[in-house]
Design a protein around this nucleic acid. Sequence first.
DNA 1: CTTGACATGTAAATCGTTACATGATTTG
DNA 2: CAAATCATGTAACGATTTACATGTCAAG
Lengths: 194, 194
Amino acid sequence: MSLRHAVLGLLTEGPASGYDLLKVFEASLANVWPATQSQLYGELGRLADAGLIEVVAEGPRGRKEYGLTEAGLAELRRWLIEVEPESFRRTDMLLRVFFLGVVSPEQAQAYLREQGAVAARGRESLEEIRSTVDKGDLENAPLAVYGRIALEWGLRFTAMQQEWAEWAARQVDRIGERHTAAAPGTDGSGQSRP
Amino acid sequence: MSLRHAVLGLLTEGPASGYDLLKVFEASLANVWPATQSQLYGELGRLADAGLIEVVAEGPRGRKEYGLTEAGLAELRRWLIEVEPESFRRTDMLLRVFFLGVVSPEQAQAYLREQGAVAARGRESLEEIRSTVDKGDLENAPLAVYGRIALEWGLRFTAMQQEWAEWAARQVDRIGERHTAAAPGTDGSGQSRP
DNA sequence: CTTGACATGTAAATCGTTACATGATTTG
DNA sequence: CAAATCATGTAACGATTTACATGTCAAG
């Protein structure tokens, strides 16, 4: 139920329409909390019904600008301070690792190396954002500081993942050395545990 | 749609009932891909309908043991090799960071330090698992190797998160020094951007 | 006057969680 | 025989994705 709070958070920067918010979700929040158009308009309706946001202006093409209400800001603060973040991570990438024994060591290594490369590419694009952000030094404005902190998480995460993937690929080498003959192909033949 | 593949993966270790699988999900897979009982039984039914698994034995209390079919193993391999993992992470914890500007620097710091502590606790419990696993040296059996690789990810991830959170809390100190008077409480008064 | 950007919404399907419901078997 | 464990399922609700549907305005 955090899309709700993401919307409230974005509206602290000033009023915006669903369309505006959608662009923010696609651009800056895409890596943290993706949202689709459907979901967003639905949530805006529900937030307005709940009195957490309200229409503050109407524009051309039926444009509705929403602004945060007092209740909305209070709810955002409550969520930030009182509600514990859910810690579990459903990671597709890691789930696969558990089952890499069913493909050949070469295929497993290819998988791990690819994950390392994906992380490296991610890190590069974040580095670019960093250099842009760090240039326009905004005198420690809170937003810049917290945005920079989130960015740093991404930088460290991708670096960690890259190093881990490379390490992991090397570990698989050590199986390869012992099981060269036993490696099953993709032919769909029998199970690993007889 | 990866619960499906998690189930297929677990069944490569041998036939199991829904009840058996549920325990595995709660114990070893809980941190990577949580699943509830409802979801699991539903998925088992659908997998059986699709011919990817089949009932290989029936026990007491209506127990049904499912085993992987050839088609199921082929599907698992296809998923591992051909389907790219989805990279986006919906991280509650990080979403909040973006909005920490709406609470006081002290509260923001408390939040970040708590996240560091959570990571530290997670890391400790993984370290314990590691010491257990590393003792019973299973001669590089593929399962032990890949399980160990996944565990290593957790160790590195929690270490990274702990260090990041501590770094982040120090960054907030630097705002605190400049904005000591401007910090809003939890009283729900006005917005940061008038 | 056509294209592209702006702008909002609904419908159907799938996935996930919580809670409910039921009953059989083993063990002390 | 009572309690714990084994064992499977359904119902209701909320979150998410994909696709559909509609219409306005500005610029070339």
